[in-house]
Design a protein around this nucleic acid. Structure first.
Lengths: 247, 247
DNA sequence: AAGTGGTCTAGACCACGTC
DNA sequence: ACGTGGTCTAGACCACTTT
């Protein structure tokens, strides 16, 4: 969703309404106000692009840009020939930005520390196999801790398919975080994300410095690159963590 | 992010590669492959739109469309005069679709039930006051339960500013969920979302039918409409809940 | 068959921010 | 000052779907 710099007309000092140039943002704002006011009611069909272009006195492409934006935002539903319809139950879309832990910690003004806890080859458990694909062969299993100012903040458990990310196996995980390596070397991947709450397992609680059974925020992620499974990771955040975003 | 229907050329039966028409999706794919291959390295400046348009043999507007899409996806950073740069640490963006609980439950093939637990006027606690704005006056406080097949799934606690949503105060909350009302009557709002894990408080645990202190997934949301605070809500999900999305 | 949105083009002007 | 991206226009063709 494009941010809305909107200007193009710098509001002078006390300059009244101003005729305001016709930009696609203008059209979008006007359309949105009709949606809010109910002039365009839920489920209803709105006028087609050509009609709106005439009404607003602009090119059809400009109307298209505005309506496309509203459609992406989930307010409208557009289909060729069928026209543009106001969505009945606008599904809220929240965009989470998943930053690299190191960046997130350093952005908060804290010192970052990475500590490798374990590293071994082993066949992944069934659940991980399913998530990664059909892998029964041994994978790299690594656990690590991310600390802020020396205080444990996130526990990371990771399974890496050797076939998916050759190179990662040779990395010295003691000094380089697996995620940092992946971001640098296997960019532009796709995958699945899952958020949940869980009771901290004993050994993880010990690493995080909290009581076993504490409620912890868990992020699980499967990373793929063009059909090839690369890695499964579970990040367990120390109690108190919050993931925030604007709607 | 626009889905990529990509066609425009219906793949005939066994028709080889096909010259492929030049659409903005084509350009985007080509650009993305350069990003993946490292031909356009992180931090680097890529050729400007005019140059790419010449190279790809299309109009500048088409290149613009493609690059704008990649920028929205977080791969590129574009600035006037400065040019287009490959982002160093592509921040993953996960889009969560926050559905109305009722829809979510019914989509899962379960029967939905709403049960109002309490309703009263009271001054909100400090934390809620801060979130909503500077409201010291009494607000509506309502608690409710959402059930799937008769089993409690989500506990909802809500504070409503009477000034923000007149009309909601008169709604018969016993039969109409506050959220459903809001969606129907105060659409196109903005706000903040926060996800976390917490230990279930005793009274909430009792309603959800789980042990006090169980790890539960909590979603807090502040809803505004053009600067006016409308409502603060905390949804507590029964243990086992997972929020999933594709990256 | 026909209407609607999706997209491309070629040219133009302008805002912005770096130089 | 000037280069780069942001956007508008007017016209055109096409893909998709519903009628």
């Amino acid at each position: 969703m494009p941010s809305d710099p909107s200007p193009r007309i710098a509001a002078g000092h006390e300059t009244p309404p101003a005729p305001e140039a016709i930009t696609w943002q203008t059209i979008r704002a006007r359309a949105l106000s009709r949606l809010r006011s109910g002039a365009w009611a839920p489920g209803e069909l709105i006028p087609n692009e050509a009609a709106l272009a005439t009404e607003f006195g602009c090119a059809r492409a400009t109307v298209n840009r505005a309506l496309r934006d509203l459609a992406e935002a989930g307010y409208l539903e557009r289909r060729r020939k069928a026209g543009t319809r106001v969505v009945r139950n606008p599904v809220r879309k929240a965009t989470l930005s998943i930053a690299i832990i190191r960046d997130e910690i350093e952005a908060g003004g804290h010192s970052y520390e990475y500590r490798l806890l374990s590293r071994r080859m082993a066949p992944p458990p069934r659940a991980v196999q399913d998530a990664l694909g059909t892998n029964t062969h041994p994978c790299l299993h690594a656990c690590a801790l991310h600390l802020a100012d020396g205080i444990p903040r996130v526990h990371e458990e990771r399974w890496v398919d050797p076939g998916g990310a050759p190179g990662l196996m040779e990395v010295d995980l003691a000094t380089t975080g697996a995620n940092a390596w992946l971001v640098e070397n296997v960019r532009y991947t796709e995958g699945t994300l899952s958020l949940s709450a869980a009771a901290a397992e004993a050994h993880i609680a010990a690493h995080l410095g909290c009581a076993p059974g504490s409620a912890v925020f868990v992020l699980e992620r499967v990373t793929r690159m063009r059909e090839t499974a690369i890695t499964w990771v579970r990040m367990t955040y120390a109690p108190g963590y919050r993931m925030t975003t604007a709607i």
